[in-house]
C-alpha cells in the first residue's frame, strides 16, 4: 500500500531503507542461507573437509531417539506453559475486570513480571523449588507426600521450567485479555443481564466468544515464546537435564552446534525450526484476515 500523495525522489528512498536492508541481509538472510547449505553437508570433526550428503543429516535426526524425545518434550512443555499462563491470565483478568474501581492499581501490580528476563525468572523459581531450600518444594513434599527433586527427576525438572516460564507470561496474557474485555460493549453485557443471564453465563456466552480472537492470538504468541524465548530459563535452571528431560529443540540446536560442534546436525535442526516458525506465522496471518471480517 502506498499513500495517494507521495514524494518522487531518485535516490532518497533507497538511501532511507538501506540500513534495514544491510542489517537484514548480513545478519538474517545470509546466516539463514548458510544454515540451509550446511544442513546438506557433513563435515569431519575438525571442520577441514565437508561433503555434500543430501538429506543425510535430516534422516539421521529423525532416526535419533534423542531428537524425537526432544520434539515430544518441546510440545509438552509449550502446551503446559500456554495452558497454565493463559488460564491464569484469563482468570485474573476476569476478576480484575469485575473490580472496576481498582483496575489501574491491579494492572500496575500485575504488569511488571513482563519486564523480568526469562533467565531471572528461572533463578527465582530455582530457589523456590530447590530440593533442599525451596519453600514451594517443601509445600509440595508436605501436601502431596511425594519426593520432590528436580535435579534428579525429569518430570520435576519439567514442572520447574514450566512454572518459571509460565509465571512471567501470565502478566503478558493478562494485559491482552484485559484490553480485550474492556473493548466489549457494555450494552451487550447489560442486555444479557436484563434477560436474566447470570455472571457466569454472561462470561461463557458473551465475553469468552468475543475474546476468541485474543485467545487465539495469545495461544500463538505463547507457543512461540515457549519454543524460542525460554532458552534463558533452560540454560540457567536445568541445562537440558537431568538426562535430557528438559532438552527442548532450541536448546538442542545450541548444544549440538555451539557446544558439541556437530554443524551438519545443528543446521538441519535449525532448518526444521525455521520451517516450524514459518508454518506458525502463516497460520497466524491467515487468521488475522479472518479476524478482520469477524469484527466487521
Amino acid at each position: 500500500m502506498i499513500k495517494r500523495s507521495f514524494f518522487k525522489s531518485r535516490y532518497l528512498p533507497y538511501f532511507l531503507i538501506l540500513p534495514q536492508v544491510i542489517v537484514t541481509l548480513t545478519f538474517f538472510y545470509w546466516p539463514a542461507f548458510q544454515g540451509l547449505m550446511q544442513s546438506f553437508l557433513l563435515s569431519d570433526p575438525f571442520g577441514r573437509q565437508s561433503k555434500f550428503v543430501w538429506f543425510y543429516n535430516y534422516i539421521e535426526l529423525f532416526s535419533d531417539p534423542l531428537y524425537l524425545k526432544s520434539i515430544l518434550i518441546t510440545f509438552v512443555f509449550s502446551l503446559s506453559v500456554a495452558i497454565v499462563s493463559l488460564s491464569l491470565g484469563l482468570f485474573i483478568a476476569t476478576m480484575a475486570n469485575r473490580a472496576l474501581r481498582a483496575t489501574a492499581l491491579v494492572r500496575t501490580l500485575l504488569i511488571w513480571p513482563y519486564a523480568v528476563a526469562p533467565a531471572i525468572s528461572g533463578i527465582l523459581w530455582l530457589f523456590l523449588l530447590h530440593p533442599s531450600y525451596g519453600i514451594v518444594a517443601l509445600g509440595i513434599k508436605n501436601v502431596f507426600g511425594m519426593n520432590w527433586n528436580p535435579v534428579l527427576n525429569g518430570t520435576d525438572a519439567m514442572v520447574m521450567i514450566t512454572m518459571a516460564s509460565a509465571w512471567k507470561q501470565i502478566s503478558y496474557n493478562f494485559v491482552f485479555f484485559m484490553a480485550g474485555m474492556q473493548a466489549i460493549p457494555k450494552s451487550l453485557i447489560e442486555a444479557a443481564a436484563i434477560d436474566g443471564a447470570s455472571p457466569l453465563r454472561r462470561f461463557w456466552s458473551i465475553t469468552f466468544p468475543l475474546l476468541s480472537p485474543t485467545f487465539f492470538f495469545l495461544s500463538v504468541m505463547n507457543i512461540i515464546y515457549s519454543f524460542f524465548e525460554t532458552f534463558g530459563v533452560i540454560h540457567t535452571v536445568t541445562q537440558g537435564g537431568p538426562g535430557g528431560s528438559t532438552n527442548i529443540l532450541v536448546y538442542k540446536v545450541y548444544q549440538d552446534g555451539f557446544v558439541g560442534l556437530n554443524m551438519g546436525s545443528s543446521s538441519a535442526q535449525s532448518v526444521i525450526l525455521m520451517s516450524l516458525i514459518i508454518l506458525i506465522t502463516v497460520i497466524q496471518f491467515r487468521f488475522v484476515e479472518k479476524k478482520v471480517q469477524y469484527t466487521g
Partner: peptide
C-alpha cells in the same frame, strides 16, 4: 520468520 534462535551457528 528468522529469529536468532533458529540460526545460531551461522549468525
Amino acid at each position: 520468520m528468522l529469529p536468532v534462535e533458529v540460526r545460531i551457528m551461522p549468525t
